[in-house]
Design a protein around this nucleic acid. Structure first.
Lengths: 232, 232
DNA sequence: ATATGCCTTATGTCTAGTCATAATATATAC
DNA sequence: GTATATATTATGACTAGACATAAGGCATAT
């Protein structure tokens, strides 16, 4: 029986403390919600919220009937904000500028069909564009859009607004896959980003789907020294 | 007045749909929880949960009294799992092997003191180690630990268990900063990771604190072709 | 021994309230 | 006009219940 004042954040703290001092060692099952609610002198819903959030953070593993366990390998979850490039640039105080380099409709190449599970003759809109911060190259965007899946695509000219921003506003999506990697600058990329050939380039790739239908594949290549940060 | 069956996920869907079809354009204020609860025929708590989760996802911006607004720049949040290297390697089916390369106590160098806000004569334990997947280099770990902040550090020899795994099990932390970037392989790194000098290396850096006290700084350099993926 | 279905149980979700708190808007005092 | 106190209001947190659902375990029939 603990003192009266117990919020769900307090409960989270207590549970975390018990995990850290090995009262509840990794892999062990912890008492049920009802029992904990009694111990903490609060409603089960309050315990539930605390436990749910700890499970979302990867600290606990919950299963109906099976109960709640302390996660064996403390997989931490880092949350990254994925803002629009424009916002990201503007938030540094720099002026944002956008340029469309290429825009053309293709039959999807084999590698793209494989990535997006597209049919043999699927048409895609291929766009290449640059995002600048105070006129220094910030990001090169290489994007393919599945034309069949995106309504209204013919009404977008992408000369003033980037495909990312357009899609975010016009096109809903349900699933996203993001990958981060380090790549080598080839001739084209070096030229666009004012790099030397062979320089490392921080790259993110994104695929989005709308309930199973692939919408778009995009590769973002960042300028020299870019670093994606998060704190939590 | 909508049909009866309304869960908080349904409400999220409806709200998202209204944002996407511009019923509630970006920046606009949306009806209060009580009003929405009436419309959807459910309790305010249910609307609250839907709205809270949408706010956590960066879709909405909520403030007491001010009300709930559609976020102007739809900042999406990507969640990455940060597992232990060992688990990451083992999950690919490969055999994990760990080697300690160096272990020595130093007076913290200036750049580290600046990063961790350490005093002039603070002592740090510097460790370098390798993580292998099936005997191919997977990750090089370069780690500095603030000795004053970590109890029991003298009892850890780090020959069989990596510092990351040891710290996760022994040392609580409250704040983490993670940065991702692409770097160039220098001579040492190329040697450790079986790369050529100048090759791009995917790098993550991590700093952790325990309620304001810096615990450790670590830089992880990954082998060729590594890519950090997430899906949500 | 094995497969099927039922029962139990812990979590998941929900309701209809209450009280708390932060931020705005308004009224008041100077 | 400006600063300060006050009322209002929307979200935040919580309670004590309820029913839903998934999954483990047990009993039964084959």
């Amino acid at each position: 029986m603990l003192p009266s004042k117990n919020s769900y954040t307090d409960i989270k703290e207590i549970v975390l403390a018990r995990i850290r001092d090995h009262t509840w060692p990794p892999g062990s099952i912890i008492p049920g919600e009802i029992e904990l609610a009694e111990e903490f002198g609060c409603a089960r819903a309050t315990v539930n919220r605390a436990m749910r959030e700890l499970a979302e953070d990867g600290i606990l593993d919950r299963k109906r009937k099976a109960g709640t366990r302390v996660n064996k390998s403390p997989v931490r979850h880092a949350k990254f904000a994925i803002p629009l490039v424009r916002i990201e640039v503007e938030s540094t105080g720099a002026a944002y500028r956008y340029t469309l380099l290429n825009k053309k409709i293709f039959i999807a190449p084999a590698w793209l069909r494989a990535r997006l599970s597209l049919g043999d003759s699927a048409e895609v809109l291929h766009l290449q564009c640059m995002h600048f911060a105070d006129n220094t190259p910030f990001q090169f965007e290489d994007r393919w859009i599945n034309i069949d899946a995106v309504h209204n695509i013919e009404n977008a000219d992408f000369t003033t607004i980037g495909p990312n921003e357009w899609l975010v506003n016009e096109m809903p999506f349900t699933d996203v896959e993001i990958a981060f990697s380090a790549r080598v600058a080839d001739k084209k990329l070096a030229e666009y980003l004012s790099l030397s050939i062979g320089e490392p380039v921080f790259t993110t790739e994104r695929i989005t789907w709308l309930s199973g239908t692939p919408i778009t594949f995009a590769r973002f290549s960042f300028g020299r020294g870019y670093s994606l940060k998060t704190r939590f």
